[in-house]
Design a protein around this nucleic acid. Sequence first.
DNA 1: GCGATCAGCT
DNA 2: CACAGCTGATCGC
Length: 399
Amino acid sequence: MPRFSSPVGNGLIAVDRWTEPSQAYFLTHLHSDHTQGLSVHWSRGPLFCSPITARLLLCKFKGFDASLIRDLEVGTTHTLSLISPVTGGEVKVRVTPIDANHCPGSVMYLFQGELGCVLYTGDFRWELTSERANMSKSTLLDALNGEKVDILYLDNTYCNPCFSFPSRKDAAQQVVDIIEKHPDHEVVIGIDTLGKEHLLLHISESLKTKIWVWPERLEIMDLLGLDELFTTDTSQTRIRAVPRYSLTQNNLESLNTIFPTIAIMPTGLPWSQNSPEKGAYTVPYTAHSSFLELEEFMKVIRPSIIVGIVSSSYCLIDPKHHFGEMCGVDNCSTKGHNLFFKVMKGSHGFKVRKKEGKTKVLASVQRSGVNIVRKERRGVKIEECESDFEVPIGSDCSS
DNA sequence: GCGATCAGCT
DNA sequence: CACAGCTGATCGC
């Protein structure tokens, strides 16, 4: 997880950051790598989010002070009044939450005002074969109304040409096809606490069956209005959605001693590979944009400055490297601006492990439960510290 | 005992 | 490796 120092504490707006003072806090979605520092007792200031995220938040943090929440209708522009840390005067900021098509309630935020134009995508999928993504595109272009984006904070999770995925609709059908080829098997599908609901819906509708989920997950489904398609009664279905971390090769083998079972892992990660002979299937169903989708997005936005919000040691995903040519000449400097945004950066963390020798790459679903990989690890753990991530925008401050 | 943080894992 | 997240240890209160 990212660790930040805080040399300057006058943030006006914080996005997915919760541990430092700010005048307004924005939450893109309720995945836990975006809520680090948020808790039941958090009370630093007004928290802006989508209405669905607001409901999910109160469910996740039971007892959270609901009076802090400002739920913003998605797709419309709202005006905030803040105090300039420079002049002490009023600063009006327009904010437009736009459906990010990542998980239920997820939004990007477009901030506009006299002090600049900033787009923070959060995690998003720019899947223009879907109606929803096209509505997001319309909303974004309407709100921009020709204005150039000064700073783009981009979900660069898969910002490398090696990442290519089918649409989620096609990937969902791949899952259905796999299940239909195993009519006498139990099926376990790895999911997280939020996300991939549309995949499960597609399966449920195609196969005319309910899907088992664990009790806390049923509560989420209930909140999303999907509870009729799910059950916590294993006798009602052969298909179970289980926590992703529980889908290990060992667990699959154990299940197979009881009843023939296949496991399906919906993921965009490249090191997860099919192993049908072992009953482990990986399907490229992902809630993050593929490289081509990011490229399409960049053609629309063409910001002056681009900042990736994710870092990875796996491969080069720096958006400046891949898209720098599409941006303004000055895509590194932040000189001459004055409104401080503090944003969450680094959902993949900044921890870098350097290893001697090679560790074999295995799909998580295929990996042996034995700590062979761990035993093979050698070398030194290196902590890479990033400085406080603040980007000043605007034009009337010299520093 | 509780919450926050972190190590270690998938 | 780690999309996002769990478990358990430890530390300060």
